[in-house]
């Protein structure tokens, strides 16, 4: 069943500013019919950079139509610089929320606006304002940028390509960009992990045994387990003897033929990186 807010239904049933502008100052089309979602946005912009008119056409579900409709209301009468930072979260807020499965539908509206403004700035020979996302496009089906994916990974603590697809739509079309998304996840999570100051700070002083054990426990609990759990696996700390950390692999990891690789290249690597370079990880069954 659809759990759409009254405002979504209202915009879906009575969409504003549908149609085309004869001589637009900026326009963009994102999405494709293969993916089942497409939007065309056209803008009329005066000499002061004020958006005097906006028209859209959308092929898509109720949420996609309502998102585009509400977006036109959000930008008409505003200056291009004012609206350059509008994100899909802003659109969702304006709509009074969207069901989680539909969040990606609002993304296309924000992307259409971004592309249309890029078109405008390019035609005018102007530099886009700094708040505008000009990072490279990763998903061409849905026009999702690298920054957008990185931001979603941070904001929603995403760890898998599927999660990124759910939140941003990236990779949900032809799927060609999935490998690239994985790279962005790896890079972004790498940054996240390096950040926690308490771990980095403690690393500089020699550790007491107790501190060291606590840290190993912490890293396994907070860093390693969530990653393995995302793939249906799990890990349990069994014992720590000097430099040897004994773990038990659980869930899908238990049956996994490459679990020795996971232990050496991921678990051990992570513990070495964050706790002690001398650590050796051993599997107990």
């Amino acid at each position: 069943m659809w759990e759409y807010s009254p405002k979504v239904i209202e915009h879906f049933m009575n969409p504003r500013n549908v149609g085309e502008i004869e001589d637009p100052d900026a326009e963009a089309q994102v999405g494709s019919f293969v993916c089942g979602d497409m939007i065309k946005l056209q803008l009329k912009i005066n000499d002061q950079g004020i958006i005097t008119d906006a028209k859209f056409k959308t092929f898509g579900c109720g949420a996609a139509i309502a998102s585009a409709s509400v977006l036109t209301e959000m930008i008409i009468g505003k200056s291009v610089d004012e609206v350059a930072g509008i994100s899909n979260e802003d659109i969702i807020r304006e709509l009074g929320g969207l069901p989680e499965a539909k969040i990606h539908c609002s993304v296309m509206g924000a992307d259409a606006l971004r592309s249309a403004l890029e078109d405008y700035y390019a035609k005018q020979g102007l530099q886009p304002p700094p708040e505008m996302d000009t990072s490279p496009l990763v998903c061409h089906c849905f026009g999702v940028t690298q920054n957008k994916i990185r931001n979603a990974i941070f904001a929603y603590h995403l760890r898998t390509v599927d999660e990124v697809t759910t939140y941003t739509k990236a990779g949900g079309g032809c799927g060609k960009c999935k490998e690239e998304i994985q790279k962005i996840i790896n890079a972004t999570l790498g940054e996240q992990v390096a950040e926690p100051p308490e771990l980095v700070a403690v690393q500089k002083r020699p550790l007491t045994n107790l501190q060291r054990m606590k840290m190993i426990e912490d890293v396994i609990e907070k860093e390693i387990r969530p990653q393995l759990q995302a793939d249906g696996g799990d890990i349990k700390l069994v014992d720590i003897k000097d430099n040897i950390v004994q773990v038990e692999m659980l869930g899908t990891c238990r049956e996994c033929p490459v679990s020795p690789v996971t232990i050496k290249q991921y678990v051990e690597q992570k513990l070495r990186e964050l706790v002690d370079n001398e650590i050796l990880v051993e599997e107990v069954k």
Binding site: W2, F12, M13, C35, G36, D37, F59, G60, C61, G62, A64, I65, A101, K102, H104, C105, D162, V164, T165, T166, Y167, T168, K169, A170, G171, G172, G173
Partner: peptide, 26 residues
């Protein structure tokens, strides 16, 4: 798009279903 057809039919009290499902990111 099928879901928008269903949504409009639903507003008219007509229950139908569509072939595609826009439930996850894709």
């Amino acid at each position: 798009e099928g879901e928008s057809i269903l949504l409009m039919l639903d507003r008219e009290g007509i229950c139908a279903s569509s072939g595609s499902a826009c439930t996850t990111g894709s």
